[in-house]
Structure formats: structure tokens, C-alpha cells
Nucleic acid binder design. Structure first.
Lengths: 340, 340
DNA sequence: CTGAAAGCGCTTACAG
DNA sequence: CTGAAAGCGCTTACAG
């Protein structure tokens, strides 16, 4: 004998309730909500009013289950303690959230293994799209992304690989540009100080080398690379180390502004004349760099623009549209201040 | 006449597949996966092996739909550009993620309206729990949280309201402590410089006032409050403004380290002797403060501990357990360096 | 353009 | 301790 149905409703207003209130079928409500064209204007209006009146909010879980796609968009960045990525995330959020997607911040700590674990966990939620930083990841991460069959946009770096979508700028060119600036200022023994040694840092190093080789002034002894985490304190330490190794250095390009700010503070402590004795340049032009003593020369990088354009491109892909370009190249700017 | 069933499977390995492979019913698999006690050990083992062998990953959407609870845990913080909250979030993530929950970072920009919108959007996903910053929110936000009927832990501030869960420290006491330190150094005209003017900043101001009133030295003319966003640049500007208004000031307590660092740099530009002519203190003890010239005196705040303990408390609540205390009070520490 | 039926992949509630 | 049935709230695929 059949048992009577047992109510398990969450008390939540459902699409059914809206349909009943509007006097249409649930499917029609679903169509209006998802913006499908082929619904009669008058019916659609009735549905919208019922939605409004009942304060209906669609259940994302039910949606995800039925459509095999959630509204989530994981955004994987290396760090939050770098203001660069915070600016990027803010821009991404401003595009995706109003469009109805849920950007989820994932932090990899520059660890490809950690990125792989994050990816596996996020992909189980069947995200609508994916935003990742750069191209340095494990083979398994690559396969996970490919097999998930979702739109993915790579941020911060450029690539001309077929089928790859990206928005970024040439880290190498930017590194070369700031080195070029130091050369133009008459510096001849230009050092390079870097930490973290992530791919983008190494690309900047390549730009530095390319520029100095062209000028016939490349000297590997003027490079100081450390795998430690970037920090203001480390910038000071590394500068002192470089000065000990090569007292003849007349300029330093720090691979980021944190290190450069630390270098500037250390120079002050050492009573080293900047820029008289030593020119100093950073990278990213973070808040605070303009306040340093002397104000820091740096490269303004378009991280907010990268986030904005990357999110826009992903939005197009998630809607099934084809972006005008696979790869958007943005520009940077050398900001010359008193430190060089 | 009934139509034949149309396959719509996602190709994904399902709980059914695991059940078939293990030779048990789907419910048993579900029980093992959720760690329900009452499953025979031998059966459970067979299930675990099948899960392993098939690489089964439960579908969060199906789970959320069936159980009316997702594994999401929104964590709402005011800003990511303040390292304080990044430290907090890192700690939260380290607790929640391994426990099977998905922490979702939400940024309110110190805007209660924005918090309300974020809350509404997140609660639609039926999160398992919620982590919010402080107690300053709209009445509607409060109601949204209450009506959602989920565990919620408040971070960074303390409250003894019944039924409220929180982990934090007394911002007022910490503000009083650093003021006390300046008094102990012999300062008598101690200024207070603040920006943003969020609740915690105002609580620090109260601590400052309480301390100076007790000493009979409170002078409202030495307070400079600005609603602008905190930044290094603003710290410098505000210091200059205060010095113009009150050239007799002999110490300044900046409500955070960003402002204090800017103040220190401005003092250098103005060739103002710190701490001889002016003592300077900050709040939060951010990276970089120890590198300033002179190194900055500050208050080390337990943000990582707040994140850790707050997430732990939430974990207990989500598991239906009762935490030992409703409110965990953590301690801070005045870090004395050369600037005072 | 609109709708009735089936199904997404789980868990709940009940029974044994 | 274990399981068959029903249901969570949507969308898909098909029919008209």
C-alpha cells in the first residue's frame, strides 16, 4: 500500500510557487529567469511581477544539479599579501558579480601542488568558468582544466598557443623597459635583485638581461636571485648583500616594489645617496612607493585592467560567444620618480 | 504510451556507481561518506575501497539540494588591501578547507549596504556557516543572518550579548595600552590620528581617550579623524595637518600602521626628529613597520589567532557541538621599537 | 511560443 | 545495522 507523501519542503519560495502565482507553467518561469528569448512578452511580465512580489530567489544547488553547471567562477591567484592580486581580484569581482556569477578566490601560495588540489576541489562544483594566473602549472592541473570542458582565461601573462585565452602584458618587455630607463640615466653597472622567482619574476629577469646584452653591459655577477618570499625586510638584506659582493653597482632594478621599498630604507640606514650613488627602481608601482624617500621609480602594471578584461573575456566565453581576440595584450608604464 | 527514458547523465561517477561496485545500497555509501557511525565496519571498508578505486567525488550540488545545506562558508571582511584581513583569511582557510568546507571570501569595503547584498547573495546558497567581521551591520543583515538559522561567528570584536558567538580582542583596551606606553615614555600631548573611522578604529579612539582622561591629559584638539580611506600617503598628510594645528604635540598614536608609516616618512621629509621631537606609534604591527626609520612602535594584534579560533568555533557549531565559551578573548601586545 | 514528463545525484524519513 | 521509496528545486529534451 503506498504511503502518503511526506513533506520535506524547506519553506523556501520555489519556482513552482512563482508559476502558480503567475498562472503559467514552471518551465516558462525558468525560461524568463534565464533570459531565454522565446517567451511571450505579456507572460514574461506576469512572471517578473510574481518573482518580485514573492521575493523569489532561485536555488543555485537545484540549478547546478539540473543544468550540470554552477554559477561559480574560481579565480586562482598566488597570494593575497601582494596588493597586485588584490587589485586584480577587485576588478574581476566588479565584472562577474553583477553578471550573476559567484567569483571564488583561491590562493595557491605560488605552489603548483596546492593549485592542483584547489582546482580538483573547485571543479567538483562544476564551475561556469575559470580564471587562473599565468601558465605555470602541473600536467595534471592542465588536464583537469581541459577535461572539465569549461571556459578558462589565463591572467597576467601572454601566450600565442592555439585555443588558449589570456589577458596580460609582456613581463619581459616591462623588465627591459625599466632597465632601459636606468641605462638612459647613464647607469652602466645595473644590478637585478629578485625573490620568490615565480615565472613572471623570471620573465622580468629575461627582459633585464636582453636589454643589457643589447647594450653590451650584461654582467651576471650583478644579479642576485633569492627563492625566499618577497618582503620589505628581504629587500634591505639583499641590497646589502649585493653591495658587499659588488661595491661598484650603480643602479638596482628590484623585481617588485616590496623589495625596492626595503632597499630604499636600507640605503637610508646605510647613508647611501639615492640616486646619486645608486639608482633604485621597482616594479608594479604599489601604494606607498610614491611616498618613499626618495620616491621610487617603478613600472605601473595594468593589474586592474587585466582583471577587468579577463573577466569580460570569460563572460563572453561563458555565454557561448567568441571574443574578438584570444589574447589581449595590455600596456604598462615606466613611472619615473626621484630614486633614479 | 510511456516514452523511453532519455539518458542525461553527466558521465560523472555517481554514488550509485560506488554502491554497485561495493555491492551495497546507495544509502550505505552515503552514510559511510558522511561518517555516520552506524555502518558495519566490513561494509564501510568495501565502500571506501570502491570510492578510492573509482575516484568518486560527491556532487556538492546534489548534496546541497538534498540536505538543504551546502559546504560553503562565506567569510566577510572589509578589505583585502589591509594585510590584517589577509592574515585572518589565511588562518580561516587553513582550518575550514581541510575539514571539507569551502570558505568563500566576501569583501564589504566597509559598506554595510554592500555587506547586506553580499549576505543575501551568499545565503541563497544555503551555506553551512558564516564568518563576519565585527557587529556593525544593517538591521536587515542581522535579520537575514538570524532567519538563515545557521551558525555564525563574529570576528575581531567582543560582545557579551546572549547567543552571540565571537572571537576577538578588546580594540579599546589595545588602544589604551599603546597610549599608556606613550604616557610612560613621558609624553604629555599625545595626538590621535585616524582614518576610515570604522567601528574598530573608533573603539581604539575610545581606549585612547579613556587612558588620557584617567591621566587628566585628554585634549580633544589633539585628535584628528578623517573619514577618508587609510593609506600611507594620507598618514603623511594628516600628520602635517596635525602639526600645523597643534605644533605642541609630542606624540602621535596612528590608528593603524599604514597611516603611521606614512607619518614616519613625512616626519623624515620634514626633518622632524622621531622620537626626540615626536614619538610615533601605530597599530597592527604590519610587515614593513619594523623596517621603517626609525622602526615603528605598534600593537601586534592576534589576527591569525582570531581566524584560527573563529574557524574552530564555527566548525564545532556546524557539527552541532557547543563551544566551551561563546566569546573568546585573545590578547595583543605592545611592540616597542625606536619610534617612541 | 508553451508545457507535461523525466531526470540531475544526492539525503531524509520511514520501515524492518 | 541496512534498504526501497520519495523528494530536494530546478532544467533538459521532446512534443505540440
Amino acid at each position: 500500500m503506498p504511503r502518503p507523501p511526506r513533506p520535506r519542503g524547506s519553506g523556501r519560495t520555489t519556482l513552482q510557487d512563482v508559476a502558480a502565482a503567475a498562472g503559467v507553467s514552471p518551465i516558462t518561469v525558468s525560461r524568463v529567469l534565464r533570459g531565454e528569448r522565446r517567451v511571450d512578452g505579456e507572460l514574461a511580465e506576469r512572471v517578473r511581477q510574481a518573482v518580485q512580489r514573492l521575493g523569489y530567489v532561485p536555488d543555485p544547488a537545484a540549478r547546478a544539479l539540473a543544468s550540470a553547471r554552477s554559477s561559480q567562477v574560481p579565480v586562482l591567484v598566488p597570494l593575497l599579501s601582494n596588493a597586485l592580486f588584490v587589485d586584480l581580484l577587485e576588478a574581476v569581482h566588479r565584472v562577474l558579480f553583477p553578471a550573476g556569477y559567484q567569483p571564488l578566490i583561491g590562493v595557491t601560495h605560488y605552489d603548483t601542488g596546492e593549485e592542483e588540489r584547489l582546482l580538483a576541489s573547485h571543479l567538483a562544483h562544476r564551475p561556469a568558468g575559470l580564471l587562473v594566473t599565468g601558465f605555470d602549472r602541473t600536467e595534471r592541473s592542465r588536464r583537469l582544466i581541459a577535461d572539465a570542458g569549461l571556459p578558462c582565461v589565463h591572467l597576467m601573462e601572454l601566450s600565442d598557443a592555439p585555443g588558449v585565452h589570456c589577458v596580460g602584458f609582456s613581463q619581459a618587455d616591462a623588465g627591459a623597459a625599466i632597465t632601459e630607463h636606468l641605462l638612459a640615466r647613464g647607469r652602466r653597472r645595473i644590478g637585478f635583485v629578485a625573490a620568490q622567482l615565480d615565472p613572471r619574476t623570471l620573465q622580468r629577469a629575461e627582459g633585464y638581461r636582453r636589454c643589457l646584452r643589447t647594450a653590451g653591459l650584461h654582467d651576471p655577477g650583478l644579479e642576485l636571485l633569492s627563492a625566499e618570499r618577497s618582503s620589505i625586510a628581504l629587500g634591505g638584506e639583499l641590497l646589502q648583500r649585493l653591495l658587499t659582493l659588488r661595491p661598484d653597482v650603480d643602479a638596482v632594478f628590484f623585481c617588485n616594489d616590496d623589495l625596492a621599498q626595503g632597499g630604499l630604507l636600507a640605503a637610508q640606514r646605510l647613508r647611501l645617496d639615492v640616486p646619486g650613488r645608486l639608482a633604485v627602481a621597482g616594479f608594479n608601482d604599489l601604494a606607498g612607493s610614491a611616498q618613499m624617500l626618495p620616491p621610487l621609480t617603478s613600472v605601473r602594471t595594468p593589474r586592474a585592467e587585466v582583471g577587468h578584461a579577463g573577466a569580460q573575456m570569460l563572460l563572453q566565453l561563458m555565454r557561448g560567444e567568441t571574443p574578438a581576440e584570444h589574447c589581449v595584450r595590455l600596456s604598462y608604464e615606466v613611472v619615473v620618480r626621484e630614486s633614479s
